[in-house]
Write a protein that binds this DNA or RNA. Structure first.
Lengths: 150, 150
DNA sequence: CGTACACTGAGAACGAGTCTCAGTATCGTC
DNA sequence: GACGATACTGAGACTCGTTCTCAGTGTACG
């Protein structure tokens, strides 16, 4: 159980990781956070970055996202409830602010018997840039998820 | 489309992978599929299983799921549009059959500028078994996703 | 039969993430 | 200020899931 600890210290490394995350408007991977943090704290090790990110997530100061199978975890300092739309082509993700109806969640909880505490919703598609650049023939389209029903 | 290949063969290995996937009621990882396939085709290699799974996914015969950051991909032969509820404690996933409203998707497409082709929705919580076994104090609660706002 | 080529298994290689360990920084107490 | 306890750090080894490479095999077709 990682987060019952009273004696958490705000070290320069941790502060730098949080700052980088807050300054980021994209949704950086741990490796990208590492890159950026090294500009501020050159000697920092990747293990420290991973540890700091895990700590921030476990204390609710950041969210961990997985924007697709086979891709690295991404981090987001926007801890308000929100979802993402991910481009199938370039991978760019934008925040989406339309929560799904409370009633639907309640219905699902009732039907499944699960005590639902949250959800992750990720839309797939093509971002405006890729749509424009590419017309309607993406490199590797929706087949990655589920086939489009009728 | 990436898979314009005409010359796909239904080899015993591929048939076995598909069969295992169809027979599975859980959502097995590639490693679990490998285990089970080996009972039918003992000499099969893991690379072949991975290749076959990727092929099934790309031809729309299976879905690839990621049921949480840091966990292995899971596979599902139920290719109808559906979502999942995942237990935070034991990891068990069940299928959910409540699509989110068309109108919401259209609204999100309009607001984000993305051409939405699909979505992945994963509910988190406690399954009935863990709820019963554990009362109301899960090992590592919702902090993993977003903090529960009022 | 011979050729072309999709497919296979073994194992190496890869990337993401975690673990281990020895050294360092910081806190509370004397 | 010295001291001990303990949180934290960086380096690098390690694990795990997955993909790649390559030589060999199976099969369709002329």
């Amino acid at each position: 159980m990682p987060d019952q600890r009273q004696d958490l210290r705000l070290t320069p490394q941790r502060a730098a990781v949080l700052e980088v995350l807050r300054a980021a408007h994209d949704h950086p991977t741990a490796a990208e956070v590492y890159e950026r943090v090294r500009e501020v704290v050159p000697g920092i090790g990747s293990a420290t970055v991973y540890r700091s990110l895990a700590l921030l997530v476990s204390t609710g100061h950041a969210l961990e996202l997985n924007l697709g199978p086979g891709s690295a975890a991404r981090y987001d300092a926007n801890t308000n409830r929100h979802d993402h739309a991910v481009c199938d082509r370039c991978g760019r993700a934008v925040d989406i602010d339309h929560p799904i109806p409370e009633g639907l969640v309640a219905e699902i909880a009732r039907d499944s018997g699960y005590a639902i505490t949250g959800y992750d919703l990720r839309f797939r598609g093509l971002c405006p840039d890729c749509l424009g650049a590419d017309g309607v023939s993406p490199q590797s389209p929706g087949v990655r998820g589920e086939p489009e029903g009728p």
